[in-house]
């Protein structure tokens, strides 16, 4: 990509006129406002609301990190929770057993999850389409069973779990989570506007054609998978301190795969801001239904998912782009 003008030309769909190029900065502006609000929130809202915003950020991170792999390549990964959970465990063990400082523990969570993804990716990414999805579902459940097994007991304390006492304030966790969200969105944005991002998208569009155009699809898929797991592991590693107690049932619960996926579908799979939008709206919605229909919250997500697939399969952002409410650009 040579000049800025050229880049706008490459990424803007619908005629390259200057106002469209200008509107493509809209996404950046929206996200800047979002981050500014989240930064100011500790001084604006009460503690209960701030807790909710923390969870919003956590789910945005999970959704956006899932989107890095599945949104770009179209390989729908159902093993995301495995990387979140492995990150949680790595971080919890580093703190509880090794006395590591919290930020190193979080970093370790990301690295262990990325390493786990790298190991798994070699066999997994040879599997295509829906078979990949089914296999990743098995990977997630298998990871849960193994982490709660007697084999892993010395490390994970199996079913009894790991209690955690971390001496950092809630607001530190909140800002750290916000920083992770900014990082993953920036990475997505850069990717979406790069040649590598286009090649990843070409895998989603038609993998065989991409191969025949010289795209090393295997390497790209592994890269995206590891990057996605890295952010999931960071998120899990940080969230472990919020939970202060880690056990296999909760760390590897399938809902932490499902909910970020539904959030991403809702906002717009494969877009930059889709996971932010979906994560924010649906987590606030989730908070609302917790207060009202409490135990049916997963069923409610199910209804959202069914409705999305039937009526708005591209998600909200693409729907808005198709109707001209938003410019057709990969920057949003």
């Amino acid at each position: 990509m040579s000049t800025r003008r050229e880049r706008a030309d490459s990424s803007v769909h619908g005629g390259g006129s200057s106002w469209v190029a200008w509107l493509s900065w809209l996404g950046v502006a929206i996200f800047a406002v979002y981050v500014a609000f989240m930064l100011a929130a500790p001084w604006l809202v009460n503690r209960g609301t701030l807790s909710l915003l923390y969870l919003v950020l956590y789910f945005v991170l999970l959704a956006a990190s899932w989107n890095l792999m599945s949104g770009f390549t179209g390989y729908i990964n159902f093993a995301h929770v495995a990387f979140i959970g492995v990150g949680m465990y790595a971080s919890a063990i580093a703190i509880a057993d090794l006395g590591a400082p919290w930020f190193l523990a979080v970093a370790l969570g990301g690295c262990v999850a990325a390493a786990y993804a790298a190991v798994l990716s070699v066999p997994l990414l040879r599997i295509k389409g829906p078979y990949f999805t089914i296999t990743t579902l098995a990977v997630a459940e298998g990871t849960r069973v193994i982490m709660s097994s007697a084999f892993m007991e010395p490390l994970t304390r199996a079913g009894s779990g790991i209690p955690l006492f971390v001496q950092i304030g809630f607001e530190t966790k909140y800002f750290a989570m916000l920083a992770l969200v900014v990082a993953v969105v920036v990475v997505t944005y850069v990717l979406a506007n790069s040649r590598i991002g286009l090649r990843l998208l070409s895998i989603r569009e038609d993998e065989r054609a991409a191969e025949n155009l010289g795209v090393n699809t295997t390497r790209l898929k592994i890269g995206a998978f590891v990057l996605s797991a890295f952010f999931a592991g960071l998120g899990g590693g940080l969230h472990a301190m919020y939970l202060s107690y880690i056990d296999p049932f909760n760390a590897f619960h399938i809902k932490y795969t499902v909910i970020p996926i539904i959030m991403t579908f809702f906002g717009g799979i494969g877009t930059v801001l889709g996971p932010v939008l979906g994560g924010t709206v649906l987590e606030l919605f989730n908070d609302y239904i917790w207060a009202h229909v409490l135990r049916l919250n997963l069923a409610t997500f199910g209804v959202v998912l069914v409705a999305l697939i039937l009526f708005m399969p591209q998600g909200l952002l693409e729907w808005l782009k198709d109707r001209g409410f938003l410019p057709k650009t990969r920057r949003i």
Partner: peptide, 22 residues
């Protein structure tokens, strides 16, 4: 695409399963 039906039936499963739990 197969993934559409995969996600759809997944949504149905969540509805059936969670309602049955309740």
């Amino acid at each position: 695409p197969l993934l559409a039906s995969l996600m759809l039936t997944f949504g149905l499963s969540l509805i059936i399963w969670n309602s049955s739990q309740v």
